[in-house]
Amino acid sequence: MLEDLQTPCLLLDEAAMRRNIKGMADRFKQIGVPLRPHLKTAKSIDVARILQEQGADRWTVSTLKEAEYFSSFGLKDILYAVSIVPQKMERIMQLNRTGAQMSICLDSTEMATHLSTMTLDGPKPRVYLEVDVDGHRTGVKADQQRAVDVARILANASNLEFAGVMAHGGGVSYAANGQQELEAAAEQERTCTLAVKDAIVEAGLPCPQVSIGSTPTALFGTSFEGVSDVRAGVYVFQDVFQANLGMCAMEDVAATVLTSVISHAPHLNRIVVDAGGLALSKDRSCASQSNDCGFGLLSDVDGHVDPLLYVQGVSQEHGYITTRDGSPLPFELYPLGSQLRVLPNHSCMTVAAYEGYHMINGDHEGEWWPRCNRW
């Protein structure tokens, strides 16, 4: 079957994905805290249905296109986890008018004030105050008066519903080295977010929800006391970066890129494939880890990883494969026209290049599952 596919193309191992989804779902059923899966990686209603089978009933997205897409399939409790701007509010309100229960987030008195003065036609959107737990991205710091100031504006707004506080511990956790550091990162995410809630409550304001999460903090958190829901996304597919962190084994990486050998360059000790920077992304996140995997690791078409090979470099449509230790390539094992699979460094970035998934290794083998792309 795979030999008939035009390369490069995206493969999704259904069995591996189902294991990943069930493992995280079982963990949080035991903990007793709901998961709010992040759909930014998969962007597929077919994948979301499998998450639903394991109990998911609330969702996170990174684009309004995703929110519109998933809402059209009946997924309604949706958090758009990117700082809002006024120009996007009409799309938010249109979603609410058609049955969604949209949540948005912000981190400034300026935006809170602006939204509170807007005329919003439809059910009130829920608004989270985003907390910066590790200097990673956006949000207010736990010791800033701004947190209470923003919360007060939101709580007093007649056209908004103040939902509470949220955070994404994606800085310290993604830079962590070993279980102890991962556990500490998860606890930092939780306690910093709860500190902002406590400050808001002490000011006499409501703060109903506390939403936190990333795949590393979800998997290594030792306490979720005080947490309303946990957001994580890349765990559904996993990738080489997550495997290097200890989140999974390489055989758990569910999304891979099928590529064809198009050239041999013995003088460079290089095999060239037709998956380049556009097909793999140029994410080099693994360069920060001890196990630097270039632009991805390689397996055969059956999924057996060859630890000797990696994608050393890319240009737009070419991927350059060589040995990790500099030993001579066994070119005879990889004849022209043969196929390999690339395990991506960062699956969220790699799968974004494709319109859908060619399903393998499961009940839906041979099917094509479409994705929702763009914004």
Rank of each mutant, 00 (worst) to 15 (best):
V140D: 05
A243P: 01
E90G: 01
G74N: 12
A48S: 07
D300H: 05
L35G: 02
P125D: 03
F295H: 14
P8Y: 00
L245A: 09
T323L: 00
Q144S: 14
V150N: 09
G213N: 12
E355V: 03
A175H: 04
M1Q: 11
M24K: 11
A147R: 06
G170C: 07
D26L: 08
E130V: 08
T322I: 13
A163S: 12
A176F: 03
E53K: 14
E317F: 15
D306C: 03
L129R: 04
D149G: 08
G246M: 11
D26S: 05
C9W: 08
Q180G: 03
V201C: 12
Q180P: 13
Q312D: 09
G277D: 07
Q6V: 15
R19C: 09
Q52N: 04
A186I: 13
H364V: 05
Q87S: 12
N269Y: 12
S223A: 12
P330Y: 00
G337Y: 02
C9K: 11
A195I: 02
G32D: 07
S173G: 10
K88F: 13
P370N: 06
L154S: 02
T113W: 01
R49F: 06
L160W: 05
Q312H: 15
H318W: 03
H168N: 13
H136K: 11
A249G: 14
Q30T: 14
T350A: 03
D252A: 10
V210N: 08
M89I: 14
V133H: 06
L75M: 14
V85I: 14
L194V: 04
M17Y: 10
K88P: 04
V253H: 05
M1D: 08
F224G: 10
Q94H: 09
G296P: 05
L2D: 00
P216F: 15
M247A: 08
K40Q: 13
T193D: 10
G139E: 11
M349R: 14
I92M: 09
V234Q: 11
L219I: 06
T41H: 13
P206F: 01
V47W: 05
T98F: 09
M247L: 14
E161C: 13
E189S: 07
R58F: 04
P125H: 06
Y354H: 10
I21C: 01
D300K: 08
P123L: 06
G366M: 03
M102N: 05
P344Q: 02
Y69D: 02
A186M: 03
Y128A: 14
T7K: 12
D13A: 11
D107Y: 13
D325F: 11
G164T: 06
V257I: 11
P208Y: 02
D132H: 07
T113V: 09
A147F: 08
S214Y: 00
M118D: 04
A167W: 00
V61G: 04
S158H: 10
H267T: 09
G32R: 01
N177E: 11
D46G: 10
G139K: 10
G294F: 02
Y320I: 10
A42Y: 12
M93N: 08
K282I: 06
A167N: 01
K65W: 00
L120Q: 01
D252R: 03
V148R: 03
T350E: 05
V234K: 13
E53Y: 02
A81K: 02
A275R: 09
Y320M: 09
